[in-house]
Design a protein around this nucleic acid. Structure first.
Length: 477
RNA sequence: CGGGACGUGGCGAAGUUUGGUAUCGCGCCUGGUUUGGGACCAGGAUGCCGCAGGUUCGAAUCCUGUCGUCCCGACCA
């Protein structure tokens, strides 16, 4: 018995958070390792989760006027070279194709690490007049970055994402787009994933290669490390000048359009796991859960029980993603199995319940049990799913607040960074030197300059000069 | 990329020091009994011991290389 439990156990997160994460990813049957370093086989359950995320985001992009396109996975070296900061940022981690069949290529091709330059090359051919703007595009694709260390979802060589790329007549319009998409991400994270996020701007040191400004939503994971959950960049006209994308403006003059890009990736799945998961495994936010309600017949050999379970599932099929587990595993096995997979609601129905016209509903995140009349289920399930969502959000928010500290002296920030995981709020003068020093001495990096500023001191925590802004510092995935 | 650990049926391990018929638990298949927190009995199947070389009469075991995994650190939009 004890031995058996060992076999199935998930390492507890207090013992080793990284190992816990790895265990959950595998026990919940999200992915398996492929034979290629850092690349994963995404299993049906993981794929279904991603599809739910993708479908919702896609709908939100379309609702804000964007169209999907598909660009190639290869980038000729000369094209990648066109924007200096960009190539410097990405060249160290791209994969190169040098041969096609037995033929050696005259110019090697990189496998896209991101598609800015492809979009630029594309735009150059289709934009001539101010009437051609804006271009509001998005693509769903996978990209490749040759990372040194990899972890499922959080950092893989190949990962799936969407990348929005837009082109605008004016800087103001492009900036508004950048902000709009950051808000789309933030709203999605909070309303759909029950993941509280802090909206803000990245420092110059942390911003995207080639961007004028990078905006971010930062979430705090259960272990106190930060995760950039989504990002939105304003490029100004740096790329459009480098790629000679121009148009004839309203006044008849040649102008360069202003550009944005924004992305969210399968990394967000890692974020879901590390925000809501517990020592029994995954906890799925209801709105993206591949299975929202698992119906478990108890003593299913008895007459009418499976039929009863099927009838319950049938009554919910238009209301929630529901599944009946009528496999011949024991009930205890099924409880543990579906908890590992994080299904938000479990409906148990045995002969006693069915006779009484009731069932037991158990919430995954707090294991609360309630008895519900079967006839009330179609009305109750949406309420309960929302309750789980709210519960998850509140729990994550409370956790983040508990793990957010304030520091006003260098000594204090070093001591907090060493002893208390989480965010540290501190004032900053805006100098790179201070940012570097905090990394060096406290081991923290700037996570974001939040839009919602608080003045916690007058001077920079590092150099003592007048502070420009309050920054969230921490360690990041 | 550094430091450490590791790779043996689907999963978890023993066996490697000292070379000699590949073992155990779980899972899987068949049949039966069970069923409200990881059930039980009986029978059965599944291995180029990560891969490639080498040493040897003989390699899971020794040597070399390589691929992959995990943890810590560095690096990373």
């Amino acid at each position: 018995m004890a031995e058996k439990k060992m076999v199935e156990a998930i390492t507890s997160m207090e013992d080793n958070f990284s190992q816990w994460y790895t265990d959950v990813v595998h026990k919940a049957e999200l992915v398996r390792h492929s034979g290629v370093r850092g690349c994963m086989y995404v299993q049906p359950y993981g794929t279904a989760l991603w599809e739910n995320i993708r479908n919702e985001l896609d709908a939100r992009f379309k609702a804000t006027g964007h169209e999907n396109v598909m660009l190639p996975m290869f980038i000729p070296e000369s094209l990648l070279q066109k924007e200096k900061d960009h190539v410097e940022g990405f060249a160290p981690e791209v994969a190169w194709v040098t041969h096609g069949g037995s033929e050696k290529l005259t110019e090697r091709l990189c496998i896209r690490p991101t598609s800015e330059v492809l979009f630029c090359d594309y735009y150059a051919g289709i934009v001539q007049s101010w009437r051609d703007l804006p271009k509001l595009y998005n693509q769903w694709a996978s990209v490749c970055r040759w990372e040194k260390t990899t972890r499922p979802f959080l950092r893989t060589l190949e990962f799936y994402w969407q990348e929005g790329h837009t082109l605008h007549e004016t800087a103001e319009e492009a900036q508004a787009e950048t902000e709009q998409m950051l808000n789309v991400y933030a709203d999605f994270a909070e309303q759909h994933l029950a993941m509280p996020v802090i909206k803000g701007r990245k420092t110059d040191k942390e911003k995207f290669a080639g961007a004028v400004a990078t905006y971010t939503i930062e979430a705090l994971m259960h272990d106190g490390q930060a995760l950039q959950a989504g990002t939105s960049h304003y490029f100004g006209d740096g790329f459009t000048r480098a790629f000679d994308i121009n148009f004839t403006g309203r006044s008849g003059k040649v102008e360069y359009p202003h550009q944005t890009s924004w992305g969210m990736s399968t990394r967000i799945i890692g974020g879901i796991i590390m925000t809501h998961g517990d020592n029994s495994g995954l906890v799925m936010p209801p709105k993206v859960a591949p299975v929202q309600v698992i119906v478990l017949p108890i003593a299913q050999h008895k007459p009418g029980v499976i039929e009863g379970a099927n009838a319950i599932a049938d009554s919910l099929k238009d209301i929630a993603r529901v599944k009946v587990d009528a496999s011949d595993n024991s009930p205890g096995w099924k409880f543990a199995q579906w908890e590992m997979k994080g299904v938000p609601l479990r409906v148990e129905c045995g002969p006693r319940d069915l006779e009484a016209g009731t069932c037991v509903v158990v919430m995954r995140h707090n294991r609360e049990k309630i008895t519900v009349n079967i006839s009330d289920l179609p009305m109750q399930i949406p309420v309960l799913l929302q309750q789980v969502h709210d519960g998850l959000y509140q729990k994550a928010l409370a956790h983040r607040e508990e793990m957010t500290h304030t520091a006003t002296t260098l000594e204090e920030i070093c001591s907090i960074a060493k002893t208390k995981p989480g965010f540290i709020k501190a004032m900053w003068c805006g100098d790179l030197a201070c940012e570097m020093q905090l990394k060096e001495q406290a081991g923290v990096t700037s996570r974001c300059i939040p839009f919602e500023q608080e003045k916690i001191a007058d001077s920079c925590i590092c150099c003592g000069k007048p502070a420009k802004e309050m920054v969230y510092w921490g360690r990041a995935y």
